[in-house]
């Protein structure tokens, strides 16, 4: 057992364990924890695959960003009904069966493909006669190929296995050294345009997410019923309450249609069916802070 195998065993097992536990756990926060475990172990796998930069990115973006955001979202949405959100047994069984069969399928596929031969085909562009060799003979050749070529690779800064930061950066700004089929190093086209697109995309997503999740008024707590999904129902109730309260006072009942209209327009504008005008005098505790 080499060091690599040992580390792979550790990381792969924790990755799989985390993933399976995510699927099995019902508590959403525990799911987040297991997701964390899985993602962090996957970052370890990335290290093993000589992708240091990506591993760091995985830790920073996935773990430090995405998972935190998820947990954050869990906390923000935790105020709903406390009814259990667990699936029915049948669903679980079907899903488990499907997942198992999918794993079997994928593993079977992985095992049945001669990757070395495919790699040779991809490298040389033709089906080589050596492809018929047994698999284990080609094993060393497979493991030695590295994203940045070899230790003496002329790729920028590739002094050590896993030092892909420079290569990635160069590829991002448009210089991508690559080996052609004659085994010569040529300068391929980089990823400058996708890089720019992804940057703009990120910005747009940020703005869009901020827009989508911008603060809106929440429903009064008295309205938190399962069927309170239609906004039209809500302002009808509002106006009905107004009318009933105004019937005692003729002057108020005179003025109530105006306020009714006002509240309707407010509701239509705000879109959530909660109007400060109508509900302030009735339900002072409506603005529940999240």
């Amino acid at each position: 057992m080499t060091v690599l195998q040992f580390l792979f065993a550790v990381f792969a097992s924790t990755t799989c364990l985390g993933a399976v536990m995510v699927a099995l756990t019902q508590n959403i926060v525990r799911m987040a924890f297991w997701l964390m475990v899985s993602v962090a172990s996957a970052a370890g796998l990335f290290f093993l695959l000589h992708a240091d930069f990506l591993a760091a990115a995985q830790l920073l973006v996935y773990l430090g960003g995405t998972v935190v955001i998820l947990v954050f979202g869990v906390m923000l949405t935790a105020g709903g009904r406390t009814r259990s959100l667990s699936p029915t047994g049948g669903e679980t069984i079907v899903a488990a069966a499907l997942a198992l069969s999918l794993i079997m399928l994928l593993l079977f596929t992985v095992g049945s493909v001669d990757w070395e031969r495919l790699n040779t085909i991809a490298k040389t562009g033709q089906v080589s006669p050596t492809a018929a060799q047994p698999k284990n003979e080609a094993e060393p050749q497979l493991t030695e190929s590295s994203p940045t070529g070899d230790e003496n690779s002329p790729v920028l800064g590739a002094g050590r296995k896993g030092d892909t930061g420079h290569a990635l950066g160069s590829a991002m700004i448009g210089f991508r050294p690559q080996w052609n089929r004659e085994n010569q190093l040529v300068l391929g086209t980089g990823y400058l345009l996708p890089f720019e697109i992804i940057s703009v995309h990120l910005l747009v997503v940020l703005i869009g997410a901020a827009y989508l999740a911008r603060a809106k008024r929440q429903l009064p707590s008295s309205r938190r019923s399962p069927d309170a999904t239609s906004t039209s129902l809500l302002w009808d109730q509002d106006s009905a309450q107004l009318d009933s309260s105004g019937s005692a006072n003729p002057a108020l009942s005179q003025s109530s249609p105006v306020r009714d209209d006002l509240s309707r327009s407010q509701n239509l504008v705000s879109g959530t069916g909660f109007s400060m005008f109508t509900s302030d005098p009735q339900s002072p505790n409506s603005g529940e802070v999240s």
């Binding site: 695959l49 000589h50 992708a51 930069f53 990506l54 990115a57 995985q58 973006v61 996935y62 960003g65 995405t66 955001i69 998820l70 990757w115 495919l118 790699n119 991809a122 490298k123 497979l142 493991t143 190929s145 590295s146 994203p147 940045t148 070529g149 790729v155 892909t164 290569a167 990635l168 590829a171 991002m172 991508r176 690559q178 080996w179 990823y191 996708p194 992804i198 995309h201 990120l202 997503v205 940020l206 997410a209």
Partner: peptide, 25 residues
């Protein structure tokens, strides 16, 4: 790591990570 995909695979993976973050937001 294991095929002639080379650095391109890592670039794609980086894009996937970024997209995943955006998608999460």
């Amino acid at each position: 790591r294991y095929t002639s995909l080379g650095i391109d695979g890592q670039v794609f993976a980086l894009f996937v990570i970024v997209i995943a973050a955006a998608e999460a937001a």
